[in-house]
């Protein structure tokens, strides 16, 4: 009896392995197809001729039709500027919430958390008006401004700072550290995993963000990759598939390569950020 039960379990195990692989192949195939199409002429891509000759023409063509290098630079500036601002603003706010029991801190924290639900993309109409008044329409700073105070970042860092042992702070104070000395010598070094996780989540989110950048930008000098790709890929414009695939790959390549290289860190960061 036990013997048959074991074999049926073994059979189920095999079935599960096969299912896992079939699903994996199914899941990755749209992306693999796009990569394959980008390196083949659109005639071959549409007719699905697997062994047709490779070509880089699609990339050349895509680059000549739209300034993807410039878009890429814009995205890079946006993401690095935004992350720097987020880290500074969120660290200071989280430090306040974690270690200064100031009057009104609970209400203030609740008001911060509102942004977890009401994210800036929902308020595009009013925020556009505000940035127009401030003169930030069609600037990279304008894309970043509404996201610089990130409730998510404040929340994550506050949790981390709160779990830092108070004795370390006392020790640093006895050594003569002031408020910022304690922050830089004790809290920030111990929160490195949180900074890494938040950084990766923020970079992937803003590299991929589309709606707000679309609303606030209207020139080549400010458009990030996603908006450039959205403008490029408009179905009416009649560009062919392989060129669209090449343009799509150009837009996602930096982040995708970073992800493939640091897969473990990415997955763990998303997990860590989700669990907190």
């Amino acid at each position: 009896m036990t013997g048959t039960r074991l074999t049926s379990r073994d059979f189920a195990d095999y079935l599960e392995i096969v299912a896992a692989w079939v699903l994996a192949i199914l899941w990755i195939s749209p992306l693999l197809y796009a990569i394959w199409a980008a390196f083949h002429s659109s005639h071959h891509a549409i007719n699905f001729e697997l062994l047709s000759p490779l070509t880089l023409d699609n990339f050349r063509e895509a680059m000549s039709q739209a300034p993807f290098l410039r878009y890429g630079l814009n995205t890079f500036i946006l993401v690095s500027m935004l992350l720097t601002a987020q880290l500074i603003v969120c660290t200071l706010a989280a430090y306040a919430f974690a270690r200064f029991d100031f009057r009104g801190s609970e209400i203030a924290f609740a008001l911060v958390l509102v942004q977890l639900m009401i994210t800036p993309e929902i308020l595009i109409v009013e925020n556009y008006g505000t940035l127009a008044k401030l003169g930030f329409v069609d600037t990279i700073t304008g894309i970043g401004l509404p996201y610089m105070a990130s409730a998510f970042g404040i929340f994550l860092l506050r949790q981390t700072f709160k779990s830092t042992p108070k004795e370390l702070e006392e020790a640093a104070r006895l050594e003569g550290c002031g408020l910022f000395g304690i922050l830089f010598r004790v809290y920030i070094p111990l929160a490195r995993p949180t900074y890494l996780a938040y950084g990766l989540v923020s970079i992937s989110h803003h590299w991929n963000n589309f709606l707000w950048p679309l609303v606030i930008t209207n020139s080549v000098e400010t458009r990030p990759l996603t908006v450039g790709l959205g403008v490029f890929g408009a179905p009416e414009s009649g560009v062919d598939w392989s060129i669209i695939s090449a343009a799509t790959l150009l837009s996602v390549a930096p982040l995708l390569i970073a992800f493939l290289l640091f897969q473990r860190q990415f997955v763990q960061s998303f997990m860590y950020a989700g669990i907190k």
């Binding site: 200064f100 029991d101 100031f102 009104g104 911060v112 942004q115 308020l123 925020n127 509404p146």
Partner: peptide
Amino acid sequence: MRHVYGWLLLMPAAILLVAFTHYPTIAT
């Protein structure tokens, strides 16, 4: 002093959040 420090540290985030989350919500 902790009240003062707390609010000072929170200030940049508070200004940005009020400008781009709370104010637009109410204005909407």
